[in-house]
């Protein structure tokens, strides 16, 4: 759900008879749980879909640095400042290996960044919400990283080797981040009344957007079936969302915070929590660019990229000069 609504280029799932011999052979390898590696033959649609999915994920990591980076200068203790800096740095690292994983499929980082800046490729809707208080940093760790782990653990088993391997490392770091986020909230919830109110306010604002991270309901998820067949999506949006709610509600109770959903209730028959209707209109508006921070996030990324252009150009120019000098000396 760092990658939402990934376009597979197909509006319906093809019947087996419609597949070419190559496509059938490819599907047979997937069905046999053979990992696909960059040099292997693969259908063009699989390649294109993965490029979109992995780069959405990479962009989410990089754009996701901004809402949390917003509090590095204001972290309320030196320990928290160090932890937050290290966390945001980890996200840069995740972005880096995800860009590299996507590059193995025949695209380039520059092209992907260009796609992001031009609005041709999305990043997760969640990063278009603002971080207004310190409690938001704890809440992002707890809920957003929690939701990310929920989605990414199955991806460790996905069919594309480089992506699956990147996910293993990313998940290890994300679970560390989630614990740090929860620890921030524990401290706030056991602190002054003002701190506890800050934590509740953050949960009130982040709860519904965190549920939206898993993407639209399965019934409206037009591309999911193909992605599932290719094993680049292993569990459906609704399944993941339910697991997330089931896992998170007891954590909120432990913190003594109230989840802002009057319909939230344990359903003994289903063995799951029931929860209220998500405002999908808001989700689609945020994806369209109308969230509270869409404009700021992209403007900040574009400015950083443009401000850094002379640095990148100079580094390339210097490397060329050095290579020429070495050639001359040889």
């Amino acid at each position: 759900m760092y990658a939402q609504m990934v376009d597979t280029g197909q509006s319906r799932l093809p019947e087996p008879a419609e597949l070419s011999a190559d496509e059938r052979a490819f599907q047979a390898r997937i069905d046999a749980d053979v990992k696909i590696e960059p040099r292997d033959d693969m259908p063009e649609a699989y390649r294109r879909t993965l490029i979109r999915q992995i780069q959405q994920h990479a962009h989410s990591e990089v754009v996701g640095m901004l809402p949390e980076g917003n509090w590095i200068t204001r972290a309320p203790s030196l320990q928290r400042k160090a932890t937050l800096m290290a966390k945001v740095q980890d996200e840069a690292g995740h972005g880096l290996y995800l860009y590299c994983a996507a590059e193995t499929l025949g695209t380039s980082r520059d092209r992907m960044i260009d796609d992001l800046h031009a609005g041709r490729v999305r990043y997760s809707s969640i990063f278009n919400y603002p971080t207004l208080t310190w409690a938001d940093i704890g809440t992002i760790g707890w809920l957003v990283d929690g939701a990310a782990i929920m989605n990414q653990i199955p991806l460790c088993r996905c069919s594309f080797g480089p992506y699956a391997r990147a996910m293993i490392r990313v998940c290890k770091e994300e679970s560390f981040h989630q614990r740090q986020g929860f620890d921030i909230l524990m401290t706030l919830c056991r602190g002054t009344a003002e701190q506890k109110a800050m934590a509740q306010d953050a949960l009130d604002r982040w709860w519904w957007p965190s549920l939206m991270m898993f993407g639209p309901p399965d019934a409206e998820s037009v591309h999911s079936a193909q992605s599932a067949r290719w094993k680049i999506k292993l569990l459906s949006n609704d399944e993941l969302r339910q697991r997330y709610v089931d896992q998170t509600v007891p954590q909120a109770e432990y913190l003594g915070l109230a989840i802002p959903d009057p319909k939230l209730a344990w359903n003994g028959e289903r063995g799951h929590y029931d929860f209220g209707e998500i405002d999908w209109r808001e989700f689609h508006e945020v994806l369209k660019g109308n969230g509270p921070c869409n404009h700021d996030r992209i403007a900040t990324r574009i400015k950083a990229w443009e401000d850094g252009a002379w640095v990148r150009e100079a580094a390339v120019a210097h490397a060329a000069k050095r290579a020429a000098r070495e050639l001359e000396a040889a």
Partner: peptide, 21 residues
């Protein structure tokens, strides 16, 4: 810390944050 997330290239963002840490 003010630079985090706004460096000229991702590798540098990571390296400079290391120095800050």
């Amino acid at each position: 810390g003010e630079w985090v997330g706004k460096g000229p290239v991702l590798e540098e963002d990571i390296a400079q944050t290391n120095v800050g840490l």
